[in-house]
Design a protein around this nucleic acid. Structure first.
Lengths: 223, 223
DNA sequence: CCAGCAAGATTGCAGCAGCATTGCGGAAGG
DNA sequence: CCTTCCGCAATGCTGCTGCAATCTTGCTGG
């Protein structure tokens, strides 16, 4: 589990990092709201722990700001401001839980677990073709729920085809999907990938076919 | 919004019904755990408010009972038993929140809202692969019900793999699961963890295998 | 309808990137 | 002070991948 801790008391933050670490939680720490948004852009956190009093402002303002970016990471507010109405305030701007300082690490962990007991992901994009399911985000492929592992380049080709299944994908598009602009291709490497991919899909009984459109590109469809 | 209130003090229950009613909440009330299960079968509630001290037993026992029926309705425990470790207890048997008496109705409402904002929770508490059961929230692992203790980092790797069993987990995802951004990796530390984890899983006869997908990541599946 | 040709398919091969394994020493915890 | 964990790095190995040679397919014009 990986969390973001937004807290300006260095001592507390360090102690928490250590304590949470013992529970197997990986903690990123920042003292400034300004950095927090950037960090959530760069990393995917399981949860965020947020202090209210921060050097650059009231922590609660961070919540709507974060939600506006479409992130629904659970947020637990940790603060000495623990009057009932202050708790209401915090929960109503979008915090998932509110915990007054001081607190036991045990309780924080329990609240973390409670908040995390929810579906892992938001919108997982799966593409189904034939008996095959492709998750282009996680780069995983299954046939009849059995994982199929493909070499990286073949995987990239397949994902690119799957994203536009039943439609022609230009040869150049495929090349772009597999090679970055630094890598140059001096041969029929792409054709070779297609060939090997076809063989593997056939062996796995994926129920799909990769068709060629002469002079244009390729196309993935059910068999 | 419709909720189920399980509470034996009639006065409090009535007062709450009225107060919640003013917030647009329809309340079903029962004083007995025995009735509660039946009521959840007949109605779909948005949330359940649960007292601990009840005439026919400890309220917390209701939670696993209800969960076993496949219901994932959020549960908020309302109780005078409000010591930190008692709260931990409540949350860990599956309550979504825990609120000590006495409380302001305002706060209860806020917590209700917070709990209802969360996508319905279906996340598995335990993941079974081969002969191994993993609890990613508590980070515990058993093989044939015998606890297996793993070093922290190996545990984190395993939990990350288990959460997406039978699916590829990107190398970078694994790194993020084990290291925070301050910790830098200058070597094949992750590979080493995988290697040692494999050995331990083999020794324990876990019946699982960690596969590598070259250039992509790793994947956990049954042997 | 056929010859000619261009585009694609297939496959062996060699090189090498990525992975597996393991010993070592420092660090942390008891 | 002893044990375990963990990062590091050296070593060996596997199999992906680009290349090129060869074979096949299907389009085209006459």
């Amino acid at each position: 589990m990986r969390i973001l801790l937004i807290e300006d008391e260095r001592e507390l933050a360090d102690a928490l990092s250590v304590a949470l670490g013992k529970h197997g939680v990986v903690t990123d720490h920042t003292m400034h709201l300004a950095d927090a948004i950037e960090l959530t852009r760069q990393n995917v956190y399981d949860a965020i722990l947020l202090d209210r009093r921060l050097p650059d402002g009231e922590g609660l303002t961070f919540i709507p700001e974060l939600r506006r970016t479409g992130t629904d990471t659970p947020i637990i507010v940790l603060t000495a401001r623990n009057e009932p109405m202050e708790r209401v305030e915090g929960l109503d701007v979008g915090a998932d839980d509110y915990l007054g300082k001081p607190f036991l690490v045990e309780e924080l962990m329990a609240r973390l677990r409670a908040v995390l007991r929810r579906p892992a992901s938001l919108a997982e994009l799966h593409i189904t073709v034939g008996r095959m399911v492709i998750d282009p985000l996680h780069l995983s492929v299954t046939v009849d729920a059995i994982p199929l592992d493909l070499p990286r380049r073949e995987l990239l080709v397949l994902a690119a085809l799957a994203k536009r299944k039943d439609k022609t994908v230009l040869r150049s598009t495929l090349e772009a999907a597999v090679y970055n602009y630094e890598e140059e291709i001096q041969s029929n490497a792409l054709d070779a990938h297609i060939s090997r991919l076809r063989k593997r899909l056939l062996d796995a009984g994926a129920g799909v076919a990769v068709h060629n459109i002469r002079g244009v590109g390729y196309l993935l469809k059910e068999e």
